[in-house]
């Protein structure tokens, strides 16, 4: 059986007046049905761009190459109309900032009605409201919230409503772009529990985009570590956390406060500028284990160790 979603050599670059910015470079990932893939990396490493590239939700100056295979279907060749219908129906997406993701001039009810009727114009208003009530119950939101405007609701409530909007058509994949970053810790736990139970209920796969390693450790089956547009390391969560192989992953995992010594390690330097072409390993300048070869030769992905984990590093 094929994977639910597979990207093959997916690259995204943005045309800018200074030249192309390569945000995502040759990324090949797989997500199996009903599983969670955690995509981690620093700000600006291209993880959100990757999520949007799957849904073809990028601005006009974006150039996408490579392919995205969803359920055996190549999304990169799909006509715009079919792609539109697929969004929200087969693949849905939630975002980091629930406070601004609902139209301030539209009642919650109308968000549901619009979304349902965009995909199925035969549903009447009453039918749409019924379906809205059903998914709202699944995300534990009282149905009297339907008559409210977004500003009357808290951030956690709005994120639940965003999730409910995504659940309407029982999509096979949910792209969650930093779904809890804007929420406090308690709400974060609630939303994550909710996502987890909904995943099982709806048998949904999740692409969890985050910079929060703890979240990934707890939540994801597979982890892909992204750096400067490339996948540095990818594998099953537990072994990857237990024994990180890429120097960047090692650095990331060390960047957690040590209570004994009260020190916080940080990976030195900052990510490279993605403008223009680059040669060699993108992590070269910050790497503690750099070698001469890293400067000039781009590290291809190789399968490392007995668990055959994907690592893009010349060390192996």
């Amino acid at each position: 059986m094929t994977s639910l979603l597979e990207t093959r050599g997916l690259s995204v670059s943005f045309e800018t007046p200074e030249g192309p910015v390569h945000a995502v470079k040759d990324v090949s990932l797989r997500i199996e049905r009903g599983t969670t893939l955690g995509l981690v990396g620093e700000s600006g490493c291209g993880k959100s761009t990757l999520g949007r590239a799957i849904l073809r939700l990028l601005p006009e100056n974006a150039r996408i190459s490579g392919s995205v295979i969803f359920n055996g279907q190549d999304l990169s060749t799909l006509p715009a109309k079919a792609m539109r219908d697929l969004r929200g129906r087969n693949i849905a997406m939630i975002f980091q900032d629930p406070m601004t993701r609902l139209d301030p001039l539209m009642k919650i009810r109308d968000h549901f009605i619009e979304t349902i009727r965009a995909h199925d114009p035969t549903v009447d208003v009453d039918g749409a409201v019924e379906r809205a009530k059903k998914v709202l119950a699944d995300v534990r939101v009282p149905s009297d919230r339907l008559g409210m405007y977004p500003h009357e609701l808290s951030g956690g409530m709005r994120q639940r409503i965003m999730i409910a909007l995504c659940l309407l058509f029982n999509p096979a994949l949910l792209i969650a772009d930093e779904p809890t970053t804007a929420l406090d810790v308690i709400l974060e736990a609630q939303i994550l529990q909710l996502l987890q139970s909904i995943m099982h209920e709806y048998n949904m796969a999740v692409l969890l985009i985050t910079h929060n390693l703890g979240l990934v450790a707890e939540f994801a089956d597979q982890v892909a570590v992204m750096y400067a547009g490339i996948i540095a390391e990818e594998g099953a969560t537990v072994p990857l956390f237990r024994e990180p192989r890429h120097p960047y992953t090692q650095g990331l995992l060390r960047s957690v406060i040590d209570l004994e010594t009260q020190t916080l390690y940080s990976v030195p330097g900052s990510p490279p500028n993605l403008l223009g072409e680059s040669i060699g390993c993108p992590f070269y300048a910050r790497c503690e284990k750099r070698m001469d070869v890293c400067k000039s030769v781009f590290p291809e992905i190789r399968l490392v160790g007995e668990d055959r984990r994907k690592v893009a590093c010349h060390l192996y």
């Binding site: 539109r84 219908d85 697929l86 969004r87 601004t100 609902l102 301030p104 539209m106 619009e114 979304t115």
Partner: peptide, 23 residues
């Protein structure tokens, strides 16, 4: 962001303009 969110939910362009942008 709500315009992007509407697009991500599969709203056609015409509807996004009419129902989300115009008001």
């Amino acid at each position: 962001p709500y315009v992007e969110a509407a697009m991500a939910l599969g709203m056609p362009r015409r509807r996004v303009i009419g129902r989300y942008v115009l008001p």
